[in-house]
Write a protein that binds this DNA or RNA. Structure first.
Length: 556
RNA sequence: UGGGAGAUCGUCUAACGGUAGGACUACGGACUCUGGAUCCGUAAGUGGAGGUUCGAAUCCUCCUCUCCCAGCCA
């Protein structure tokens, strides 16, 4: 790879390889199984996987499961599925919880070296004596216990002889260190909880700072990549590694996590959205979770491309949601089968077309891909068009149907509007037209031009479909900038999900297969939702097509 | 007022002392049996002040602003 196309971490790896500091790069993605993966995690996955891939190294999926209070098997399974779905196959699947024995040995090593001690202070006392950002902390009265006493007490902790919160094992570093993380950080706490994997073997569990570097050391990780907020944990990461006999010395590097506009990456908020029913679940198509994006119709390749094109840096950033949309649009434009579906139906009766006639017209499956072939679509006297494609009193530059205007029904005929039929309340219920038999297929011998081309479905053959129109989840671009006193609930977009039950689709879509994506002509890209049943398809809108008419209108 | 980090078009990101480039967005136009797609074009940026240098986004000094850290979470 050439230098100019490398991001800053790739340059570091490249240097380390060239200088001989390392022989092979080893990375890892270390999720805690306490929730579902979102697109921000996907950035970490693809980055780490990518480093190993481009430099011929190894990549592990490692569960950082050191807290029995939060972790669950279900999350672990979903993470495995999601990482695999993303296409980031790992060399080894590891669990930090498998290393508990080794962590314990290294804790003993630190105690024997006089670098760790058992502190009997309460959580409250520990908090109070930690000091503040500008004031140093105070040494614990238990800080100078003998090695023998610490060994005995730590063993008592491990044996379950101590109560939760009665004591902890702390590293003996410096209570007046300007970096708060170095003020005698806690290494082990007592948690009399069953762990989803280790079960009841342990009642003491290691803290992240103590454990993480050792996990990396055990696996031979060379470049331990994490997000920015761990920058000032790095001295501690290094301290733990430098004070015991580890088999390998990894190094930590930090990058800015991904933020996407109009959504959140906070596990807390995501969990609350699900729990409060604002969304239907972790896989609600509005969620930034991988399962949500997947159900929305995003593909692994589009997500990977989005991630790779947004790049890597160390400065806070928030990527426009429109960028994600442009990537999936681009991919779908090339691949998606086209179909005609009317979202808000308006009946058209073609007065001079025989009532008993049905013609099958040929339609391209994908104009971007001739190899995709074509299909036959039924046409008859009564068809439905999009309600917004007719206006009784149209503005200038409205190319669609209106009294006296002629438009093309895509792949079928030219029709001209003759009459508008309204109900008692004045609502348009039907538009009566005449067609030009000479225009079959969409052109006429006289070569006259029609500006408007509409999608349609034959009334007699249409399949009723449920369509779910999704929009941005939140109305605020940067959800880290919520107003004082407001919560995420105040910013939920009321139009984030609009369900249409009366949409009409062309016959082909009756048995659309699960997960398939289509372009509904002039509307957008839609995928088949798992809620679909035989003959009753449900589609989720992934993204709209660019709509320049909407733009003209909004300016008027 | 402690420590750590970061500031380049509206957004994301290149430029590694030598023409500030690309993508998204926006705005024009061409073309079109999707007002889609495609193509062409336009607008838009180095946080500020000094300094070094023939030449600075890049090196130095000072300033400003933003983010992170006081869990027995990760």
């Amino acid at each position: 790879m050439d230098l100019s196309s490398m991001n800053f971490i790739e340059k570091i790896i490249d240097d380390d390889l060239k200088s001989g500091r390392i022989q092979q790069v080893v990375t890892r993605f270390p999720p805690e199984p306490n929730g579902y993966l979102h697109i921000g995690h996907a950035k970490a996955v693809t980055l780490n996987h990518g480093f190993a891939k481009t430099f011929g190294g190894r990549f592990n999926l490692r569960f950082d499961d050191t807290n029995p209070e939060k972790e669950e098997e279900e999350f672990m399974r979903s993470i495995i599925e999601d990482v695999r779905w993303l296409g980031c196959e790992w060399d080894e699947l590891r669990y930090a919880s498998d290393y508990f024995d080794q962590f314990y040995e290294w804790a003993l090593e630190l105690i024997r070296a006089g670098k760790a001690y058992v502190d009997d202070q309460s959580p409250e006392e520990i908090r109070l004596t930690r000091g503040t950002l500008t004031e140093p902390g105070k040494d614990s009265p238990f800080r100078n216990r003998t090695v023998e006493e610490n060994l005995r007490l730590f063993e008592a902790m491990r044996a379950g002889e101590k109560e939760e919160e009665s004591c902890v094992l702390r590293a003996k570093i410096d209570m007046s260190h300007p970096n708060m993380n170095m003020r005698d950080p806690i290494m082990y706490r007592i948690l009399k909880k069953s762990h989803y994997r280790a079960k009841d073997k342990w009642c003491i569990y290691p803290m992240y700072d103590f454990a993480h570097g050792y996990e990396d050391a055990i696996e031979g990780v060379t470049h331990s990549v994490c997000s920015l907020e761990f920058e000032d944990h790095r001295p501690l990461y290094d301290w733990f590694l430098d004070n015991v006999s580890v088999p390998h010395r990894p190094h930590q590097y930090e990058f800015a996590r991904l933020n996407l506009s109009h959504t959140v990456m906070s596990k807390r908020i995501l969990r609350e959205l699900v729990r409060s029913g604002i969304v239907s679940g972790w896989d609600d198509p509005r969620m930034p979770t991988l399962q949500g994006l997947r159900r929305r119709g995003f593909t692994p390749s589009a997500i990977r491309r989005f991630l790779s094109e947004t790049g890597l840096a160390k400065s806070y950033s928030i990527v426009d949601y429109e960028f994600l949309e442009s990537v999936i649009r681009d991919e779908m434009n090339a691949k998606a089968q086209r179909a005609m579906v009317v979202l808000y139906p308006l009946k058209i009766v073609i007065e001079n077309y025989p009532a008993d006639r049905v013609e099958w017209v040929e339609a391209e499956n994908n104009p971007e891909d001739p190899a995709a072939g074509s299909r036959q679509i039924p046409f008859s006297r009564e068809v439905y068009i999009e309600a917004e494609d007719f206006m009784e009193d149209p503005p200038k530059k409205y190319f669609r149907l209106s009294p006296g205007a002629e438009v093309r029904l895509k792949y079928a005929y030219y029709v001209t509007c003759r009459e508008v039929v309204k109900d008692a309340s004045g609502k348009i219920v039907e538009v009566r037209c005449v067609y030009d038999p000479e225009s079959k297929g969409g052109g006429t011998p006289d070569g006259r031009r029609v500006k408007g081309t509409l999608h349609w479905v034959s009334a007699a053959h249409a399949v009723k479909a449920e369509i779910r129109l999704y929009n941005k989840l939140f109305t605020l671009r940067d959800m880290n900038m919520m107003e004082e006193g407001k919560s995420y609930r105040d910013y939920v977009n009321p139009e984030s999900c609009v369900v249409l039950k009366e949409a009409l689709a062309e016959p082909m879509l009756a048995d659309a297969s699960q997960g398939a994506s289509y372009q509904f002509l002039r509307q957008g890209y839609f995928c088949v939702d798992p809620d679909s049943r035989d003959g009753k398809p449900v589609f989720n809108r992934t993204v709209t097509l660019k709509d320049s008419w909407a733009k003209i209108q909004s300016k008027a």
